[in-house]
Design a protein around this nucleic acid. Structure first.
Lengths: 209, 209
DNA sequence: CATAAGTAGATACCGATACTATCTAATATT
DNA sequence: AATATTAGATAGTATCGGTATCTACTTATG
């Protein structure tokens, strides 16, 4: 198909497609001439994936490029891609070593320990979580962190179905794509569902009709 | 305290504080003179809250303003503030009524029904979730939505501790602030914890040492 | 009390991000 | 032959989240 058709089917404007081509998010089409290229189904799928990562996951274009690069690596393992996707999705942690952060990080390590989780020391999420605890404390809501044990238990059942889902995808490429889609769409879905659960609970407990 | 001190304690530059004042995120200090104003503890707390919403929650400044406005309303109920905060946090849903979206929305309604949740028809998260399902289908990952029942169960226990936490906060103002902080920091924490759970599970199942 | 430092408020400017528009030279379609 | 479409290059634009500067003061300090 030509670029106009790709644009129509994906619902993405031609200038935007050209922009993604320039930015290396989308591989160039197969050239048939100096000013003609053919795009096919994989292009369309890739384009839809890009839009999902941007629209639903709110990923910046640069992060999308990183994630897609991981996805295109020839020898990928599920565990490795999880790490890379995680790393791309969490901001690089602040440079200041900060006493508060170190303390919070110890609490995070204890949390992980309590749940018997096997996590590499340098996983960025550990610092992200520590950072959140620091903020909560600064805001006078230190006890929010007390809920994190429950969050962990809940996350275990969630991770269970998540990994179950991707495991059933067959080829490595499919699994890896499933990880990306599942991570990003899953985050968004989980946030929405949590809000719905809040609404439900507060409707039941505190509704004044 | 004067603006320099406020800046120092919050770790936010003076021009940025002035910007927040202009944007109405931060109420003006108490004027003592034509070019002097006093800021106090509440200002500092508000400023820290603003930074947490922006840094951790990635909320745009305009949304922070909305959320803070809700927080400052004189007569607020927990249930109302949950709705307003939710509304501020989810983008306004697309205008196109779209067949795919309608179908997905029915699936969402069925999901809510299965769990016996009481949710107002017009809650924005219902459409957000439907939108995510549409994207998943377009990406050939329709079955991701099968996991949402598990997500709901997990979200129930999470919402339980969340509501338990804010209920214990005493005054209405504290509760409302707790909702805001808990929603935003909680989302970020939950996402991080989910990633950690993934890492743990994949380490155990698929690790090649 | 003079001089330096700090401040409010107004306005202008800035860098990053994510596109969008335009132009050229060529090819495709009708 | 006339019209539409395309690749690729380059330039322009809107928004966002600040920064910087300037003026007319007021405070703090030696």
């Amino acid at each position: 198909m030509r670029i106009a058709e790709l644009s129509r089917q994906a619902g993405v404007s031609i200038p935007t497609i050209k922009y993604y081509l320039r930015e290396g998010l989308l591989p160039p089409g197969e050239r048939t001439n100096r000013n003609q290229a053919q795009y096919d189904e994989p292009h369309l799928e890739r384009l839809r994936l890009i839009r999902a990562l941007i629209d639903v996951g709110k990923l910046p274009v640069a992060t999308v490029r990183e994630v897609l690069a991981t996805l295109d690596e020839p020898d990928i393992s599920l565990h490795k891609v999880l790490g890379t996707v995680s790393a791309s999705l969490s901001e690089p942690t602040a440079s200041t070593p900060d006493d508060d952060l170190v303390a919070a990080r110890e609490d995070v390590d204890a949390l992980i320990e309590r749940h018997g989780w096997q996590i590499a020391e340098d996983t960025p999420e550990l610092d992200v979580l520590a950072g959140i605890i620091v903020r909560a404390r600064q805001l006078g809501h230190a006890h929010i962190a007390d809920s994190f044990d429950t969050y962990c238990e809940a996350a275990e059942s969630i991770a269970d179905v998540d990994v179950g889902y991707v495991s059933g995808l067959g080829t490595v490429e499919n699994v890896v794509e499933g990880v990306v889609v599942g991570t990003v769409l899953g985050d968004a879905a989980l946030a929405a569902i949590r809000r719905l659960a809040h609404q439900n609970l507060s409707a039941r407990r505190f509704a004044e009709s």
